[in-house]
Design a protein around this nucleic acid. Structure first.
Lengths: 344, 344
DNA sequence: TTGAAAGCGCTAACAT
DNA sequence: ATGTTAGCGCTTTCAA
């Protein structure tokens, strides 16, 4: 509108524009934004006035190039549509935003290969740090990350040898706690319905081992590929029932996800089986809906908000150059005892 | 490792490094990446060899500054943890990725004020386009977007006067279709359980109007604040029942979300009410779980994958400078008839 | 098909 | 407290 000289294209307002209007040099404008304490209040005010006047928005990509600080972070999760990861990453995003960081969110689909490709792509934008899911990455991926020499937070899992920092909980520990809880409830016939992703399988192994240790002989098992859905939960029970049609009584099923547990409860209901009367069900994750099911679902709570917040905190600490950061942050888990198991 | 001269900090490999190794100038390297057809195959090969050797990753922020093309897009959705929006945006992301675009995903929490702040922040990174949710934005927001002079896709809703392009469906139309479906099924006693976000309220209004037109006098109504949860669905039925304890028979409830519908089904079950026998339930969205409920949920399907894909398509068309793009893309909706209503 | 040169919009020593 | 001066790592005319 106010294009002077009627030039073809309205030339964009840059820091130089602001400097001219405020009667200072660009460096002063830059300082007014980044280190206002170095500039006299009056000058800052004049500059801000010019900013208001023009609607100037500092170009962060230019700034990033000059300062070698992109103020961006890369986050790679297995799935954005899985609320488990969405809630976690959301908390991470909110926490780093407060510090002026923008996150580029990417989805690996549980594939190490994809993860690696995403890391490579992300690297092009020079993020100042990476948030990864899990601790199992391809060698190429680790190599690239190491070469980039930026903080790397591995979330959702714990390892003795993180790339940089890991924040999560012991999947084996959680699964063992589940097994003990079931055994403690008096269940001697136990089954497991599990997704086939790495962490779920790790839980399965620990769960089975703990059962064996408790003298429970032949736990039934059904593995479900891909992401958890109600439909897969229903199938899981259907399959389990097909295998041992006669006696489900006194059986409890541990699921790798609350969603699967929920599906099992629906299938049970549709077959006239009562939970927990005819069948005990235990979930994993303590999603929002777990307490609202009927019966309310016994499950294992993972504090996803804390996970995101701690990851953000660790990331910021590293970016600030602090070396005193814990390299292995355990957020723990908690067995949440509700009504979907028999109390004996 | 191979830091020559034992200098303090291993200086990063840039385009100049590659140029030196390949025996060409930086401009040739740049062309090899962006316009390989202008370069002799042998030269390209030598350059790629140097890239492999060094693990060079082009700096997109420098490139973006030089070319004034950030190859990034901003997307603002009300909530990332609501699967409805997550699925939509996921499809958008996947589709623009294929074209080399990275998206910065932000969450407005259904607040116009927040949305505007996010737009302002995003602008600093000079995205080449914006994906917004809904068609209702603050004036400041519209102004900024207009000033930025980039493509803006407004999704999930349709309007006669989009900022640039809108892709969505008629919420009024969908709600009316729901009302007609219920009336067609013979329901004369109808209730609505709705969230309080803008689009849900728009559906409610249209739903109520259509009922009125059909001569249905006093539909009961319960409004639920915030995001949809199973718990809120349960509460909704509890409240409805508290108001008309005597006769729920022959009543159908239309919900603004499948999740609410699901909660209502759970509450009904816990009270010994049969669906659809004692109570009809209709959802909205056709989420993945809807078909797996017991009874399967009658609902209105919104093709979220198509929504994301069409939005991406429109965005890319605009970025390519095509002017022939439809400004108002209707993806429609579909009544999905399942078992949660009585068939009379 | 390739090179030379001039910037993109900003930041960060180094001066003053 | 502010100005000067070099870049940051790339792209893109314009030449050759």
């Amino acid at each position: 509108m106010t294009a002077k000289q009627g030039k073809k294209k309205a030339q964009p307002v840059t820091m130089a524009t602001i400097a001219r209007i405020a009667g200072v040099t660009p460096s002063t404008v830059s300082r007014a934004f980044n280190h206002p304490e170095l500039i006299s209040p009056e000058t800052v005010e004049r500059i801000m006035e010019a900013v208001r006047l023009t609607g100037y928005v500092p170009n962060l990509v230019a700034g990033g190039l000059a300062s070698n600080r992109s103020r961006s972070l890369a986050a790679i999760v297995p799935s954005i549509t899985n609320i488990i990861y969405a809630a976690f990453v959301q908390n991470f995003v909110v926490n780093v935003r407060e510090r002026g960081y923008q996150v580029m969110l990417m989805e690996s689909g549980f594939s190490r290969q994809t993860e690696q490709e995403l890391v490579a792509t992300a690297l092009g934008r020079r993020p100042e740090g990476f948030l990864l899911t899990g601790v199992n990455h391809s060698n190429a991926c680790r190599r690239q990350l190491l070469a980039a020499d930026v903080p790397v937070i591995e979330a959702w899992d714990l390892t003795e040898s993180p790339i940089d920092i890991c924040v999560g909980f012991s999947h084996a520990g959680a699964a063992k706690a589940a097994a003990r809880h079931l055994v403690g409830r008096g269940y001697r016939s136990v089954a497991i319905a599990t997704m086939d992703d790495e962490r779920a399988l790790r839980r399965r192994d620990a769960f089975l081992a703990e059962l064996r240790a408790a003298g429970i002989a032949h736990p039934r098992e059904v593995t479900l590929p891909g992401g958890p859905t109600l439909g897969k939960g229903r199938q899981a029970l259907a399959r389990l029932l097909a295998e041992q049609a006669d006696d489900t009584a006194d059986t409890a099923i541990f699921c790798s996800s609350d969603v699967i547990a929920h599906g099992i409860m629906i299938e049970a209901q549709s077959r006239g089986l009562s939970v927990p009367g005819d069948l005990g069900v235990m979930g994993f994750g303590d999603q929002e809906f777990a307490a609202d099911l009927n019966p309310a679902l016994t499950t294992i709570r993972i504090d996803r908000a804390a996970l995101g917040a701690r990851a953000a905190e660790a990331m910021m600490a590293r970016i600030d150059g602090r070396e005193d950061v814990e390299r292995r942050i355990d957020i723990g888990f908690e067995v949440i005892d509700r009504a979907s198991l028999l109390a004996r």
